[in-house]
Simulated assay, not measured.
Amino acid sequence: VFLGVEWKFVKAVGVDEEITGRVEIKDVRDDKPICKIETSVRNEAGEVCLTGTATVFTVALAKN
């Protein structure tokens, strides 16, 4: 669950263009399941299209 984001959209992505997202955990709180992540999206040419950070609330995945 996104609690807050700070994203910069630095390059447009075309329709049907393949993109790749990357997330890196930068900080994890000890008292709550909240962490800060660094995010980026690159286009097919490897150019950065989005960059920034987000604060997220994490929950355990349901087991099937």
Rank of each mutant, 00 (worst) to 15 (best):
V1P: 05
F2C: 04
F2I: 12
L3K: 13
L3E: 06
G4Q: 08
E6I: 00
E6R: 15
K8L: 10
K8F: 08
K8Y: 05
K8R: 14
F9K: 06
F9S: 05
F9V: 04
V10C: 15
V10Y: 10
V10M: 15
K11V: 07
A12T: 14
G14N: 14
V15T: 08
E17A: 03
E17D: 14
E17Q: 11
E17V: 04
E18K: 05
I19P: 01
G21E: 02
R22V: 05
R22T: 09
V23I: 11
E24P: 01
E24T: 08
I25S: 08
I25V: 14
K26T: 12
K26C: 12
D27A: 14
D27I: 11
V28G: 06
V28A: 03
V28Q: 04
R29S: 13
R29F: 05
D30A: 13
D30Q: 13
D31H: 09
D31R: 06
K32A: 15
K32F: 13
K32G: 09
P33R: 02
I34Y: 00
C35S: 15
C35F: 09
K36D: 14
K36E: 12
I37M: 02
I37Q: 01
I37F: 01
E38P: 01
E38S: 05
E38R: 10
E38I: 04
T39V: 06
T39M: 01
T39L: 07
S40M: 06
S40P: 04
V41S: 00
V41P: 01
V41N: 02
V41D: 01
V41A: 03
R42Y: 07
R42E: 07
N43A: 02
E44Q: 14
A45S: 13
A45R: 07
E47T: 15
V48L: 15
C49R: 05
C49I: 04
C49T: 02
L50F: 08
L50S: 04
G52C: 03
G52V: 02
T53N: 00
A54S: 14
V56C: 03
F57A: 08
V59W: 04
V59S: 09
V59D: 11
A60C: 10
A60D: 10
L61R: 05
L61N: 10
A62Y: 10
A62V: 10
A62H: 10
K63W: 08
N64G: 15
N64D: 12
